[in-house]
Design a protein around this nucleic acid. Structure first.
Lengths: 257, 257
DNA sequence: AGTCTTATTATACGTATGTATAATACTCAA
DNA sequence: TTGAGTATTATACATACGTATAATAAGACT
């Protein structure tokens, strides 16, 4: 009780000093902080979280780091979000929408034709702002969380379903125009994997190959698809009934080296 | 001083009790723990770390969790490794070697012929033990660390260089046999990306497509490569000098839908 | 059986985390 | 200008982390 009184007294002194300084500040018209609408502040915190995930990874992204990145006090995070986990999930949703937005911008600039749209999609995938190691950093943490967190897993499912659906729409448009008879779903899976793989590996280590080479490879795949060469052999084989084991080739000659 | 004496006395009692229980145990011939060679214990801890990374992610993988997973006390981790960071790095090296080992096993069973080896490589990539969501979980944490940790980045560079080099060897073997004149390096990049993308996306969400479909797609790519259709158009165009912008197609007709 | 080495455990310490609560002060409306 | 509402800060707290140190005991060798 004694110590508490002393502390209260000390606190009172501090309050007086602070009030004095505050008065000084008022004359300077310099508020200690500025208010903001919840919606705006939430977006700022989400963007700060994305930057932190890119730079410091998931375990380096703490309440205090995010708050510092956003230039606010740590307590504000809990005021606008249910918790750290909620913030991460919201950042996933936001990042997904940002990517979607960047793609839409690139696609509206291209002619409204399936192949042109697909080509524009490829070019956009391998240039800024999509070809960004920081974006990969954010995406990697989400992929990690997908494996354990049901909520993140659900978000992932939706984001990727939309992604593949769009590619499949373009591919079926091309297939229709070129009068191709092939499994468009399988083609979309293959092309998605190719794009993702190129994007992933370039962002992981940009010194391995250039963005232009990635574009060349992707466009070449589209060429092959247009030429009706995708899964041509599988079609020639007809409906193969063996679903258990993958095909094994007949060895033309033993010992090559 | 008083409290300390008391505590010392209490500790003495505990020691007596422990000794008594220990004596009891001795009669039962049941040691409190078993010793092990450092090399063996290190491997146990590394494997425990891999399991933890797969199940709980990087931030869920702590000294205490790993120790519990390995069935030892937390202190033992620091006795065998310089620290948590060291343990993670060693786990990366070990995992890389395990993958290498699994691939070698699959390849030695296949005929010693470039195409057969490549086909076996594909099949092995999309079946156990390589097609494992847990393995992806481990790999994702390493990819995340690659972006910030120089040591992990170096390990990554070596692992991936070996990986691509092996694929390129097979591809150039096939190219030589089929008398193809193409950019083998670019082909290896494309095929690596396709395999990685398929592997990544299947492990992230196995419900999207089956391992057999992944195999079909990959084998189809090899078919296309064998037929000399890889980058055929780029070759037909000759040496294109424009390196700045990716190619943009000529639109056959405006408005498709 | 006794002794030595060291693998292993036990315990403690400082720090950083997420969350909770109270105090503060900015902004708008009256 | 004053008052109310609440965005924002400040502070506190329990917990979990990585690491350091000392104590313990298992196993091998004489």
């Amino acid at each position: 009780m004694g110590p508490k009184l002393v502390r209260t007294w000390a606190q009172s002194v501090l309050v007086l000093v602070r009030d004095y300084l505050g008065t000084q500040r008022v004359t300077d018209k310099e508020p200690k902080f500025t208010r903001d609408l919840p919606e705006s502040r939430r977006r700022q915190l989400i963007e700060a979280t994305a930057r932190s995930l890119a730079r410091h990874g998931l375990d380096g992204t703490t309440v205090r780091v995010v708050a510092a990145e956003a230039g606010v006090s740590p307590g504000l995070v809990r005021h606008h979000f249910a918790g750290m986990h909620d913030l991460i999930a919201e950042t996933y949703r936001w990042t997904g929408k940002e990517v979607e937005k960047a793609l839409r911008a690139a696609l509206t600039a291209a002619p409204d034709h399936p192949e042109a749209q697909l080509r524009a999609f490829v070019d956009a995938s391998f240039s800024a702002p999509l070809l960004d190691p920081d974006l990969l950093g954010v995406w990697l943490t989400f992929w990690s969380l997908t494996r354990t967190d049901p909520e993140i897993h659900a978000i992932h499912g939706k984001v990727y379903a939309d992604y593949r659906k769009r590619l499949q729409r373009y591919l079926s448009g091309i297939a229709e125009h070129e009068k191709l008879d092939l499994d468009v779903r399988l083609a979309a899976l293959a092309f998605t994997a190719l794009l993702d793989g190129l994007w992933l590996e370039h962002c992981l280590d940009p010194s391995t190959f250039t963005a232009i080479e990635a574009c060349q490879i992707a466009h070449d795949w589209v060429d092959t698809f247009k030429a009706g060469r995708f899964m041509a052999r599988a079609k020639a084989d007809g409906a193969r009934a063996d679903g258990a084991k993958p095909q094994m080739i007949a060895v033309p000659e033993a010992k090559a080296g």
